[in-house]
């Protein structure tokens, strides 16, 4: 067997530094700005092309936990350990509103685009807010335990949230959940397939649990080395990449689906992958974790990564530029690094 060459090094396009661990990071919809929240609480607005710091928002006194850009980048929402979500004007830095999440930590945020509103998750409470900060609804009843995932599905027009024991679907303007899927386990990661068909959850008990949204039938993937903290659907909804160990497992949902099929295994990391994101357009997959490795894959060619870098500081956040040309990683030492996608073929050197 020919010896595989080392994967091509990923080259950093630019770097920036925050004052503490990067708690959350997101590229704006137009690709011009990167918002990066620090675990110490401040939020930096960086130039997406150069990494230059444009604005420093006061953020959250007890530390920031999450952030999300509003549709058309009209606002930036941040959540923190001060129990609030805050809305910021992204170019002036003006604070538009501070919203009481209902518990000590606001851990998840998601914007809906039709209608245009914000969902916040804090403790057991899911709240829905208008873009100017008015409380529209509090989901009832409260979740059974602390909410551990929140996403918006634009085609389905629903928020999905998860906690220990269940996944809930919420219509934007209703208090009661539109649907509930149950599983007696601790759900710690959530993603809804872009085609709307499947909701996938990573579980503490080293499994991945899936529900077919239309029918509510569920299926489970087991055999993971540990808890599954990271999972990601590709933009078509055909492939689901799952963490749960140093190796990432990619399942194919076409045809008869994943049951009984053999997944692709992406093997380059030394510790369980904690962050993973598919390229918004195209099929590439970026990932990182506590081993301080950032890698980029074409999962259809699983033999080795397209590119790999070893910043030697744990990856704590990951986000793609919407055009898929670059992605950015945040690290526990405060580093923010933007990476370019190597042109396909170059560096394979076969």
């Amino acid at each position: 067997m020919p010896r595989l060459k080392d994967p091509q090094s990923l080259g950093p396009r630019w770097r920036a530094v925050l004052d503490d661990c990067v708690a959350a990071i997101a590229w704006s919809g137009d690709g011009r700005l990167v918002a990066a929240a620090s675990a110490a609480g401040a939020v930096a607005i960086l130039d997406g092309g150069s990494g230059q710091a444009l604005l420093r928002l006061a953020g959250h006194p007890q530390g920031a936990l999450c952030l999300a850009w509003a549709p058309q980048d009209r606002l930036l929402a941040t959540g923190g350990a001060d129990g609030t979500a805050r809305l910021w004007h992204p170019t002036s830095g003006h604070e538009v509103a501070a919203l009481e999440g209902g518990a000590a930590w606001v851990e998840y945020l998601a914007w809906g685009d039709a209608p245009y509103l914000l969902a916040t998750a804090a403790g057991k409470h899911l709240k829905l807010w208008s873009a100017d900060g008015r409380l529209l609804r509090t989901a009832e009843p409260p979740h059974a335990s602390t909410i551990s995932g929140l996403v918006w599905h634009p085609q389905r027009g629903r928020f999905a949230s998860c906690c220990y024991g269940s996944v809930r679907l919420h219509a934007p303007l209703k208090a009661a959940p539109a649907d509930v899927f149950e599983y007696a386990g601790s759900l710690i990661a959530l993603d809804w397939s872009p085609d709307g068909r499947w909701i996938a959850c990573g579980c503490q008990d080293a499994t991945v649990h899936l529900w077919e949204v239309a029918s509510g039938t569920d299926l489970q993937m087991s055999g993971y080395a540990g808890k599954v903290r990271a999972l990601a659907w590709d933009p078509t909804g055909r492939y689901l990449a799952t963490g749960g160990g140093a190796d990432v497992t990619v399942w194919d949902f076409s045809g008869k689906g994943p049951a009984g099929s053999k997944p692709r295994i992406l093997s380059a990391h030394l510790k369980p992958v904690s962050h993973m994101a598919y390229q918004p357009q195209g099929g590439l997959l970026a990932m990182g974790g506590p081993d301080g490795i950032v890698s980029l894959w074409n999962p259809l060619k699983p033999a080795r990564p397209m590119g790999l870098a070893r910043p030697d500081t744990q990856v704590s956040a990951l986000s793609w530029r919407p055009d898929g040309q670059h992605f950015v990683s945040g690290h526990t030492n405060g580093d923010v690094v933007a990476w370019s996608v190597p042109s396909e073929g170059r560096g394979f050197g076969l």
């Binding site: 503490d20 661990c21 708690a23 675990a39 110490a40 530390g63 936990l65 350990a81 930590w105 335990s145 602390t146 551990s148 220990y164 599983y183 007696a184 386990g185 601790s186 579980c203 503490q204 008990d205 499994t207 704590s316 526990t332």
Partner: peptide, 26 residues
């Protein structure tokens, strides 16, 4: 949090995993 296998010995404090996970970044 009880695990799905029903084993009492796998019962853990989910809140601690979450909170300490967050603390450990700092």
């Amino acid at each position: 949090f009880e695990m799905n296998n029903g084993c009492i010995c796998c019962t853990v404090r989910g809140d601690l995993i979450r909170i300490i996970g967050n603390l450990m970044r700092r």
